[in-house]
Design a binder for these strands. Structure first.
Lengths: 357, 357
DNA sequence: GCTGGCACTCCACCAAGGAGAGTGCTAGCG
DNA sequence: CGCTAGCACTCTCCTTGGTGGAGTGCCAGC
């Protein structure tokens, strides 16, 4: 029997696909289980509701649709969404007007690196009506581009570390009262000469070499101390998987009917807060170098079973990489969301490229 | 009639106060309206439930208690909490063990200014089980302490601006390809010489003075451009009321029974997101210089009618000030929360003081 | 002025029942 | 042989009505 053969192969004929598509789009917009009647009325399928019911039953057997209870309409399963994303729709480009608006906004912060990531999160959130996520671009191993020492008050100095990808870190350092600005500058210069372009590992080596130098020079002792502090900053930076995560619009998700009046979303937030899983995903995505979609239970943590994530990498694989994306209910406008995420990731790519051009 | 006189004066005798206290503490811990029976059973008041009922009726007439419906127990009103905070309990100091733990945590980030604020928010959140808030210390008018220019790639330079209170801002700048590190350093030095300690207004003046200098010197033109960029950074900094707001533990609030399954909290978040009202409060608190408690409807925006805020200033009024605090349901453990907030604000004070010692 | 007693009120909870939506199945049609 | 019309069935949702219980307000008596 042809039908049996098709079922086991997992392929769907055109009509089944059309109906699956209709179910998903209907469910995504209305958030209520969809029945055969509705489909016939709204999607002009040219067949009767009974026929549609037969097809729906098949789609359910294949695992693409589910049933909240016996006499309810159909709801897409994670597998249904997966098929939808991969075979049925792919990606929708952002409307040109949105593209223009977003480009404009990014244009305004072109020279303020620290705002890029925040803006990426905000933009994605407002365009997709889901939560927007963005991590700062982070190199696998930071290199020092520049060091500076600035006196703050009488017994404190601020150690400023500029990393190769352009981000700036800062730490405090105690100094002897009476240390002059010139002495600080001198110390900074010495450090700069000896540590430019070094990673934490190399820098540690270099400092060990310092260690063997004579101790009696007070400036030298200070240089060593500042070096230690810089090394610590560097190591802390390397150690964190997700340096900074910006998120915006978690409220949007909160407003979705499936999360109204429910404990679920709180769990999701909690899972997000500890960064563990997100860190892994980001690792995944940056390593893979392509946009990834994680639907519902495809997320390992149980708390994330009701949300989907779309993540895209940006940056230069050799130098520094980050991730942008959205988080929303599994009932997500995937084509639009994927398009938006990829658009923003390309924009971020361009911005980061400028830094290395 | 003495009772009538007392009622109009708004003063309460010892027993009424004891009962009001009992109602509030009971309600704060159990989150269910409290009846006369419960009070007699749990608080050993030495009188019968009927007497308690009479007192409760008086307290309600005075406006300290409310009634969800005719046959329900009593619930404190905002005025009730207000009286409780001002006349009945005041502030509870944090348990020494918590103090020690918090001091320890702050000790670990003593030299990483950018982590102070985040830690303050996190700490307050975990100690009070409400949302913790903290703004970075911000001077009324920023002054430049130090400028630096660092080449990034071939046609970009990072402009680093260290402000007087120690925070570091950063912006990008295009440069002519082939500009050497020495030229950048030279430009930075020139800027430093002429703008040290200036506010945005003074700096603008100085730059105007630059304007009139001969244009043909290419380094000079660049210095001018970098100056403009620095000025913009300075002005942006001055313009924002709340430079950075760290919050943590909004989840705690979400878990409270009054917000479970309700739209209310989402509104609160939204009201928080636009920073308008919070900015005003912070202005209030820093100007007043003392810890303030805003209970329920005392908050102007209607969305905030169900939450209370406790905010305390820290920093040096002349130099830089910030705010720490908590946000929770009106049903809050005020004494503990106030104590915690003030403790953390004192800690932050000490930290900031180090910068100016 | 306090207390015990009592009638009253109102919510929370549960069960019953009807409307509605949607299904699965079957017989019949082209 | 696939599609369709019809129909019985199922399950949710909503409304309705009834009950128990918690808590109040008031009154008479100590």
């Amino acid at each position: 029997m042809a039908r049996g053969a098709r079922r086991s192969s997992g392929l769907l004929d055109a009509r089944s696909q059309a109906i699956l598509l209709a179910v998903i789009e209907e469910y995504v917009t209305r958030a209520i289980p969809v029945g055969s009647q509705t489909l016939v009325e709204r999607y002009l399928l040219g067949v009767s509701s009974a026929t549609v019911r037969n097809v729906l039953a098949e789609l359910e057997a294949e695992g693409y649709l589910g049933h909240p209870h016996t006499s309810a309409g159909r709801v897409p399963t994670d597998a249904g969404y997966r098929f939808y994303v991969e075979a049925l729709v792919g990606e929708h480009a952002l409307p040109p007007v949105d593209q223009l608006m977003i480009r404009h906004q990014f244009g305004q912060v072109e020279f303020a690196t620290d705002q890029w990531f925040r803006l990426a999160a905000t933009t994605l959130s407002s365009v997709t009506h889901a939560a927007g996520l963005a991590t700062a671009a982070k190199p696998r191993a930071a290199r020092i581009r520049h060091l500076d020492l600035v006196g703050i008050g009488d017994r404190m100095a601020s150690l400023i570390v500029v990393l190769n990808e352009g981000s700036v870190k800062q730490g405090l350092l105690t100094i002897d009262p009476g240390t002059t600005a010139d002495e600080l500058a001198e110390a900074a210069q010495r450090l700069n000469r000896s540590c430019l372009g070094l990673t934490a590992a190399d820098f540690a080596e270099r400092l060990r070499w310092f260690e063997e130098a004579p101790i009696d020079d007070p400036v030298f002792a200070f240089v060593r101390r500042a070096g230690d502090r810089a090394l610590r900053i560097l190591r802390e930076f390397d150690a964190t998987t997700v340096e900074q995560l910006f998120s915006d619009g978690l409220l949007h998700v909160m407003a979705e009917p499936e999360f109204k009046a429910s404990e679920k979303l709180r769990r999701v937030f909690e899972a997000l807060e500890n960064r563990q899983y997100l860190g892994e995903l980001i690792e995944d995505v940056t390593r893979g170098g392509v946009t990834r979609v994680y639907i519902g239970r495809e997320n390992r943590p149980a708390e994330m079973a009701d949300v989907s994530l779309i993540l895209a990498p940006y940056g230069r694989p050799g130098a520094a990489v980050g991730v942008v994306g959205v988080l929303g209910p599994t009932r997500l406008r995937y084509p639009q969301a994927i398009g938006s995420v990829r658009f923003v990731s390309r924009l971020m790519n361009d911005l980061v490229d400028h830094l290395y051009a």
